[in-house]
Design a protein around this nucleic acid. Structure first.
Length: 835
RNA sequence: GCGCCCGUAGCCCAACGGCAGAGGCACAGGACUUAGGUUCCUGACAGUGUGAGUUCGAGUCUCACCGGGCGCACCA
């Protein structure tokens, strides 16, 4: 092929171009964070992947979008930290290992290599020198270290609690292993069992997790903030003490007990309407206070509750069940004796696990009262029909009735504070704040996770593994060793589990649980700042330089847990003096989901789109461009609506321009065709604003526009030799480098430049070229368009008004009517209001 | 039940409260071609889900309704 033929070719070989530039970039290493203080730092973070198989369309989308931001920052001259790693502990690897009779690491690290290679070919601007895997002992050593620090602060503790239990497999299941109430492995109905489990005391930070969201307002999606608020679930109310009376069967009279039943309520003002009490059936308290004559019925009920599957529990309109505990409690304000029941509609781990039932004003209590023939007493008259008759509870404002000195009051807030004051004065209650948020259960009876660095000694109790003995490394278990058989796989590894107590040297056992993988991912973004540090989880100074991350990009499926846990970790580390900020991610972007033909891609639907096939057919750039151009980043995009073929054709059109440029590299653009120069500079100017506001799809549209006008300029305008053409095409290459790195690089070379276009620098906008010689001003009469005027951009309001009023079209529209008001927005608009 | 988001051409999507259309897909016609494909040119297509309100002016702000999507849900 002659040079002329090459230059006039209508398309380039996509695969060949990819092969050509990959090794060049690898040698140039243009995306390694310098961290030398020469330039302002920016941290672009993307949620690290789980290594299940090769990358799919979802990975392609999120990294394409994320890379637009990172590459834009590079072009703007920032020192960018854009790291990648793998969240590599987790159940799929363990299941695969059982199936294939191998070690989970085999599956895990093979997939990591596959994904890493795919990311490399996909041309994401990652800093590969900071790569980490949470399943590496060098990483999880520090996960263990952090666990021990949390424990020292009282933020990691152990308690007995009910967990999912598969009676067939004889094993504990994580929530995500329970599918529709059934065991994921064997299909048996899952029940509950009490086990000793580790927790993080995230509830200690509930208020701060809520308050600090103020800093995120406007920079995080409103939806995510709403989800987190909802999850934390702060409510304001009161604790109220009801004196318990145990029933004495010999005399039939109530005896005062040494304890009080403390309830949490958001409506202390309705205490006069309480007609019974309910204790959560699965709360320890229920068994403790149950009268002997009711013991048998109670035990039977608890057994029934325990067996209830999640399917039943989740059913709406489920009939209320419960059992009378045979004891009574005294209403602190009326002295009335209220029967105490146990039921499963009261939750053991919310509030105090006990409620005062006010059936007239709470539908759940009313349903229960109706089921068991308990009294209903209205104490707030809302003007609605009486719930005692209708069995429809009323919860709105109204006039208090039958409520002692509250009677006649109509203000709920006043009613609440009056009751709370009185309770506080009598020492029978107090105002209280309650959260829906529960402590974070982090124990998992799994193998492929971070071991909990605790030794259980018969003499010393819980003993932390000393820091200098970390990491506690997983033993070499594989295949059948990992099958569940009543104990966690680690507990069966005798050589591993039996150790000398670090405190007394006597025989002891290691904790055989591993940590929830969300623990691993709650601090990886800190580790990226100094990934090879061997003396600490992260270098405090490095974190000070890079964190908080300016931008975090990832799926909305992590809106609650991962983000909440990461925020929690950050606050604890702040309290430990290890970081100087309280929020780890300044801005958050949730990309949408790639669907196909209106439905989520799935194997069972057979509507999956294979990323590898798309890349093979259209090339990396076309696929990336398609995903970025598809719509706003946060919208779901339907692959069926998209046209990777169209994207490829556009890229070829853009590329073709680079062969048409006839001026020499370095030709100054000054003196070039002004119209084309204006289009170029306007495009860059708009792209800046669009990129800052994450409207990447519109950026692509603007580049397409610039390609179109440049084509016209070459073919039928100023011609290929005009310096403005070179300026325009170089601009196209730089703008395209954010989305289509291979095409951009190829263009850059054909334009006579050395690689890499990714670091060429952002084009400088000449403000003079953003000004037009004339502007179209529209003239409206009564808001309706009546005339267009070509005017100078700096026309005065008075001149514009005069010109507008003199226009014949306007005069005709006015039709002699009196002009009452003229609104002038020079130089774009005049609106004439007539009387 | 509570909360959040979204309705603009056949389709995906643009539009600081100021001319409803930037860009693309699909479609039609033309040029090039033996033909197909590619490439280039040209074209048609909506008055913004409905109804009120605010405003000189509303796709844009407010309210209600209709339609679609999502999250949480026995949280006292």
């Amino acid at each position: 092929m002659t040079e002329h033929e090459a230059r006039s070719a209508t398309s380039y070989d996509v695969a060949a171009v990819q092969e050509k530039w990959l090794p060049v970039w690898e040698a140039l290493n243009p995306f390694q964070a310098a961290d030398d203080g020469a330039r302002e730092r920016r941290y672009a973070l993307t949620m690290f992947p789980y290594p299940s198989g090769d990358l799919h369309m979802g990975h392609a989308e999120v990294t394409a979008l994320h890379d637009v931001i990172a590459r834009y920052w590079w072009q703007r001259g920032y020192d960018v930290l854009n790291p990648i790693g793998w969240d590599s502990f987790g159940l799929p690897a363990e299941n695969a290992a059982i199936q294939r009779d191998e070690h989970p690491a085999t599956y895990t690290y093979a997939n990591i290599e596959t994904q890493a290679e795919s990311f490399r070919r996909y041309g994401i601007s990652f800093d590969w020198s900071r790569r980490l895997h949470t399943s590496d002992p060098e990483y999880y050593r520090w996960t263990q270290w952090l666990f021990l620090r949390f424990r020292e602060r009282g933020l990691a503790y152990r308690k007995y609690s009910p967990v999912n239990w598969c009676p067939n497999d004889q094993t504990v299941l994580a929530n995500e292993q329970v599918v529709d109430g059934m065991c994921e492995r064997c299909g048996a109905e899952v029940t509950k069992r009490e086990l000793s489990q580790w927790y993080f005391k995230v509830t200690d930070y509930a208020q701060r997790l809520l308050d600090d969201m103020e800093q995120l307002e406007g920079r995080w999606p409103e939806r995510v903030l709403a989800l987190q608020r909802n999850w934390i679930g702060r409510s304001v109310g009161a604790h109220v003490d009801f004196e318990l009376r145990l029933h004495d069967p010999s005399t039939g009279s109530g005896q005062a007990a040494a304890r009080a039943l403390t309830v949490y309520t958001t409506r202390p003002d309705t205490v006069y309407g309480a007609t019974f009490m309910v204790v959560a059936a699965d709360a320890k308290l229920a068994g403790e206070i149950c009268a002997p004559q009711q013991r048998e019925a109670f035990e039977a009920y608890v057994e029934q509750v325990r067996k209830a599957s999640d399917i039943e529990r989740l059913a709406t309109d489920r009939p209320k069940t419960g059992v009378d505990l045979g004891v009574t409690a005294l209403n602190p304000l009326t002295g009335e004796q209220l029967p105490v029941w146990a039921a499963d509609y009261v939750l053991a781990d919310y509030g105090t696990g006990v409620i005062m039932a006010v059936p007239a004003h709470d539908q759940r209590d009313l349903d229960f009262a109706r089921e068991f023939g308990l009294p209903v007493r209205r104490v707030v008259d809302t003007g609605e029909p009486n719930p005692e008759d209708t069995y429809v509870a009323t919860s709105g404002d109204g006039t208090y009735v039958g409520s002692g000195d509250l009677d006649g009051l109509t203000d709920k807030a006043a009613g609440i504070s009056r009751v709370v004051e009185r309770l506080e004065a009598e020492g029978r209650g107090s105002a209280a704040v309650n959260f829906r948020l529960r402590d974070w259960l982090l124990s998992r009876q799994r193998f492929w996770g971070c071991p909990i660095p605790i030794v259980h000694c018969p003499a010393c109790g819980e003993v932390p593994v000393p820091d200098d003995q970390l990491p506690v490394v997983l033993p070499d278990l594989r295949g059948a060793d990992l099958k569940p058989k009543g104990t966690s796989p680690l507990a069966a590894a005798e050589d591993w589990v039996n150790v000398d107590c670090p405190a007394c040297g006597g025989p002891a056992k290691r904790d055989s649980d591993t940590m929830d993988t969300f623990v691993d991912s709650s601090w990886y973004f800190l580790r990226y700042c100094s990934p090879h540090d061997t003396g600490a989880p992260f270098d405090v100074e490095a974190v000070r330089r890079w964190m908080p991350a300016e931008q975090y990009v990832g799926g909305v499926e992590h809106a609650i847990l991962h983000l909440l846990y990461s925020r929690f970790f950050t606050k604890v580390l702040h309290d430990m003096g290890m970081v100087d900020f309280v929020e780890p991610f300044e801005a958050l972007m949730n990309q949408g989901v790639v669907i196909n033909h209106g439905k989520k891609m799935s194997k069972s639907l057979g509507n999956g789109v294979n990323l590898g096939e798309q890349l093979a057919e259209y090339g990396v750039d076309a696929v990336r461009l398609t995903l970025v151009f598809a719509g706003p980043p946060e919208d779901n995009i339907d692959w069926a609506d998209l046209s990777p073929g169209g994207s490829l054709r556009f890229l070829q059109r853009a590329w073709r321009l680079s062969g048409d440029v006839a001026s020499a590299p370095g030709t100054p653009p000054e003196g070039g065709d002004v119209a084309l120069r204006r289009a170029t500079h306007r495009c860059v100017h708009e792209a800046e604003q669009l990129l800052e506001s994450h409207r990447f799809n519109v950026v692509v549209a603007r580049v397409m526009e610039l390609v179109n006008v440049t084509r016209k300029a070459v073919d039928s305008g100023c011609g290929p030799g005009d310096p403005a053409v070179r300026e325009a095409v170089e601009t196209v290459a730089i703008l395209l480098s954010l989305v289509a790195p291979y095409t951009a690089e190829e263009m850059w070379e054909r334009l006579g430049h050395a690689p890499t276009v990714a670091r060429a620098g952002w084009p400088e906008v000449d403000p003079a070229l953003l000004v037009r010689d004339s502007v179209t001003a529209v003239v409206q009469v009564q808001g309706k368009l009546r005339a267009r005027l070509e005017v100078g951009p700096d026309i005065s309001e008075a001149d514009l008004e005069a010109t507008a009023l003199a226009d014949p079209h306007v005069q005709r529209a006015l039709d002699g009517r009196e002009v009452r008001k003229v609104i002038v927005r020079a130089p774009k608009l005049v609106n004439i209001v007539v009387g």
